[in-house]
Simulated scan of single mutants.
Amino acid sequence: MKSARARALSWTLGMTLAAMLPQAAVSAAFQDPLDVPAAVDVASLTSRIFAVAGGPERLFAVGAQGTILASDDQGARWEQIPSPVSSDLTAITFATKADGFIVGHDSVLMRSRDAGRSWTRQFDVRTLNQAMLDHYRKLPAGEADGEAIRQWIAELEQRVASGAPLPFFDVWFADSRLGFAIGAFNLLLVTEDGGEHWTPWMERTENPRGAHLYAVRGTPGPDGEVYIAGELGLLMRFDRASRRFVAVPTPYEGTYFSMAVDGDTLVVAGLRGNAFLSRDRGRAWTRLDTRTTASIAAVSRMEGGRFALLAQNGGVLVADRDGRITPAGAPLGRSSYALAVAAGGAVAIGTDAGVKRVAVAAPTP
């Protein structure tokens, strides 16, 4: 199976999806990572970390082989949280202070109801493909998206037969009820009841080539904007009238791995240092001069209308309101995949050797 966002962020980032396959430990007898809880040991603190995010008064990080970490001091120290799987985990978010969601390889979608202290599985490849197939088979034959639905039925019948997973790459909630989980080959699930039920929406995207979907972000609230970014220069905005994701033209035809939104302002970034800023919801774009050919692995909103961008080599760049880029410190010099803004003028960076807290230089007056 072609691979996952985090694995892609191993960053040749030409997106040869073979690199995205989970790295199972070699053993005499194969153990399905869905049946094996993540190992609880000190080595987890130096695992590859593919996502870092703020939770209810804590920072959380997820990564290779089911690793889940939490920090109560804004990223200075981390502790391991038990995980029911050892599949690679690619994204984490919280819909409320109590309700958290994690997604990853093997079609894993997990939920916490206790502010991230414990996690249970909602879906994996052994249940998701069949659930999506059952959903599409029940839709009316005269549905407007009938052709797309027929194609998904055929695709999912093959996946159910073969057991082939669709990896998730990101998850995000607009409010306590409306959430989105996205992934490979146009995978899109939506919940409108706070994660109790998830509905496939793959037929509701303007994505005819079935590009991978890597980042979903928006403005909070039930009426806020929602955007999805992915391969082939793909950017889509949720149109509430039609309940579809419609394409938004962008200046780049390569892959976008990351995105951040602040009101009408959004930044999309990806391969070879390409990053673009729009202040009018994607109608006009300005190229950000990142001064690097390293791919941009993550973008995060900062105070004062600024954005932090993370390059694959661990370099942090800060874009101000006018799109001017300032390096925020020397690159870490190691593969880096995720970034979250922490308190005290710092960022927490997910790397190939755990989470690193890095001070961000104050903006030049």
Rank of each mutant, 00 (worst) to 15 (best):
M1P: 11
M15W: 13
T16V: 14
L17H: 14
A18D: 14
A19D: 14
P33R: 05
L34Q: 09
V36L: 14
A38N: 12
S47N: 14
A51H: 09
A51V: 04
A53G: 12
G55L: 06
L69G: 06
L69S: 07
A76F: 11
I81T: 13
L89P: 04
T93A: 15
T96L: 06
K97A: 15
A98R: 14
G100E: 02
G104Y: 06
D106E: 15
R113Y: 12
D114C: 07
G116Y: 01
T120Q: 14
V125E: 12
T127P: 04
N129L: 07
L133Q: 05
K138S: 14
P140G: 12
A141L: 15
I153H: 00
R159C: 01
A161P: 06
A161E: 13
P165V: 11
F168Y: 08
F169T: 12
F173I: 12
F180Y: 15
A181K: 07
A184M: 01
T191F: 00
D193K: 03
G194R: 03
G195V: 02
E196D: 12
W198F: 11
E203N: 07
R204G: 01
R204F: 00
T205A: 05
N207W: 05
R217V: 03
V226Q: 03
V226L: 00
A229T: 02
G230R: 07
L234V: 06
L235G: 01
M236G: 02
D239T: 08
R240Y: 11
S242V: 10
R244T: 13
F245D: 01
V246Q: 13
P249S: 09
Y256P: 00
S258R: 03
S258L: 02
G263L: 05
V268W: 00
G270H: 02
G270W: 02
G270M: 01
R281L: 12
G282E: 09
T290G: 03
M302G: 10
F307A: 10
N313R: 06
V318W: 08
A319V: 07
R321S: 15
I325F: 04
P327G: 05
A330V: 09
P331R: 04
L332E: 00
G333E: 10
R334G: 11
Y337W: 13
Y337K: 06
A338R: 05
G344V: 09
I349E: 00
D352M: 12
R357P: 01
A361Y: 01
A362E: 13
P365A: 15
